[in-house]
Simulated scan of single mutants.
Amino acid sequence: MTPLVQAEQAVLGAAFLAPGQLDRLSPWLRPEHFSRPVHTALYAAMLKLRADDHPAAKAQDAGPVPMSWMTGTVAEASKHTRGLTASYAHSLVSACPRPEHAVVYGRMVLEGAIHRSVAQHATRLHQASRADAIRGGVEDTVHHAEVLSDVLADLARRWGGEPRPVAPPASVPPPPAHPQPVDEQLLADEEFLLGCLSARPQRLDEVVGWLHPGDFADAGHQQIYRSLGALHHRGEPIDQLTVLWETQRRGALADRTLDTERVLRICDPSAFAGSAEYVGEQVVKASLVRTAAASARQVRELADDESLAPARLIGHALHALGPLVEVRRRWRTATGAEPKPPHADHQQDSTPPAARIDAALSRSRPHRTAAPPVMVPTTAAPPSARDRHHRRSPS
């Protein structure tokens, strides 16, 4: 028998022995917080009898409890579960160490419910994201992400705190990554998008506000988009060679993330023509589903760690959902559900602004070193009349 089951038995036994404890338990402890159906039915029956003004519910903790309290609870609970007997109710009474500690036992039950509820909703989010990845949707993923966030907020308040993301300590290693298979069509869409942006750099203005390098599933595509964004930000020309040079500067060729032939093929201006904004939306949508699956796995691993206190579990889980919240915000921006962030105006032709050209040249121009000081030999000043007088004077 696990400590959680023992805690559930203890809090029910305390409510049998001292029904007045329900006044301290009912505001925050619900029947669904119990892990066993029979315990759920018994606690729900107690709350119902209390709501029906059963005489025992008004009795003081130290006073005698009428037998009708136990028999009525068992009879009401038997309507919703099978196999419940009066002998099991008596065993719950004997399982309670101290009835006055009912609130502490209830907190144990709530702690177990928090871990269990977070794990269940994280599993549902993961399943929804995997299903959306197969059918190319996003609605179920967004729905279950909202449900998980709401559950975490509700559990945080029931535990007595506020829902606040908390990063795990630096000493805690991040959970191992689980790479997911990437659809070939998605990789083709990413190459198509990069080709469109390379051929028509002015279209970067349409996507830079909500499309980030991490949205690309392929590491090489991430590096090419970073290079395009860097050139665009500096106002420098964009073509096959400048993109290739920028990827080399970023080490993508040295670490073999990319090779020259691949970069030149993707950035071939004659191979692509289409709507960069539409394809970018598809890339962000796939990134949202992929991020949801990763966040759900991380939250599930946190929920399975029984050593985490509820406040830490909720805080770490909200932190794990942070990347998903950020991608979802950008997805809403891409689809027009939220206004697009303002961006700096760039010239629409291929000529970069003169000020940026001068800035780029100033970074490349060698700086003049200061000339070393010239040591000019000094000549002795002619002796004054007074000095000549002292020289002629006897010492």
Rank of each mutant, 00 (worst) to 15 (best):
P353I: 14
F192A: 13
L42I: 08
R203H: 06
P269T: 02
H390D: 15
L241K: 07
L12E: 04
V284S: 07
G251T: 08
A385E: 06
V263E: 07
R164P: 15
I114G: 06
G106L: 00
R158A: 11
S287P: 04
V104H: 14
A381H: 08
W210H: 09
T81N: 12
A95K: 03
P3N: 06
V65I: 07
A51P: 02
S393R: 12
V284L: 08
T81L: 10
D205V: 10
T379G: 07
A230H: 13
W28Y: 07
H126R: 15
Q9R: 15
F34K: 01
S35Q: 09
L194A: 03
A45N: 01
T378E: 05
W69H: 08
A371M: 07
V38F: 04
A145H: 12
L302T: 07
G209F: 02
Q248Y: 15
A254N: 12
T81V: 08
A119N: 12
V172P: 04
A77T: 02
R368A: 10
L25H: 01
L152A: 11
A320H: 00
Y278N: 01
L197S: 02
I357M: 06
E301S: 11
Q348M: 11
V151L: 08
L148C: 05
R107M: 03
R368E: 12
Q240F: 04
Q298G: 00
D304V: 08
T73G: 09
C267G: 02
T257Y: 01
R300H: 04
R226W: 11
A254H: 13
D259V: 15
L244F: 05
D239N: 12
I224L: 00
D52A: 11
T379A: 14
S270E: 09
E32Y: 10
E236I: 05
T2R: 14
V5W: 11
L187K: 08
L17E: 12
S227W: 07
A199W: 00
A309G: 05
V208A: 10
Y105C: 03
D154Q: 13
G137E: 08
